[in-house]
Amino acid sequence: MIQTLAFYLFAVLTIASAAATILSRNPVHSVLFLILAFFNAAGLMMLTGAEFIAMLLIIVYVGAVAVLFLFVVMMLDIDFAELRAGFVKNFPLGMLVAIVLLAEMVLGLGAYKAGALNLGTPDGTAVTPAGASNIEAIGGLLYSRYLFLFEAAGLILLVAMVGAIVLTHRQRGDTRGQKVSKQIARRPDEATVNVKPEVGKGVSL
């Protein structure tokens, strides 16, 4: 009974916050509702027994990606009236995306119903090898059967990261960088000079 209650709580909150994400007028509220949707989706995954994926969803998406979203949205000065002005123009494109997403979902559900995918049992629990925890099962698969795909994904991410750094990094000649070792090695007797200049005369450094 508790599982059923929790499922409906998480499901209703996920749908409600997803709707609020696209309906709210304030972009910051939108991002916060998106975060709520992520969080409730993680709760749903927890109910199906995929606790590792649920935690990763929170750590990666809620804890890191959404924070950056929030940063950007808070910093930007978005005029929402202007954004809404393009509604009619972009409506066909939006519908197209929605139809593609719907078709994908129907296909996925159909494949699952036909029994083509071994996703889990009908009562909602995911399939894990007997005696192994969620993390061990995923780790075993990632490092044996899907090793190449896993490493390739890692390499692609590395290339993307290096690319982002290369694109944004610029070497400027006119700045003075800090040399921390030099700062730490500085001692009072080499940093200060005690002079007694005569009256009316300046000091030279």
Binding site: E51, F52, M55, L56, I58, I59, V62, G63, N134, I135
Partner: peptide, 8 residues
Amino acid sequence: IGLLYILA
């Protein structure tokens, strides 16, 4: 997943 939970 106690430690992951704390990180989350």
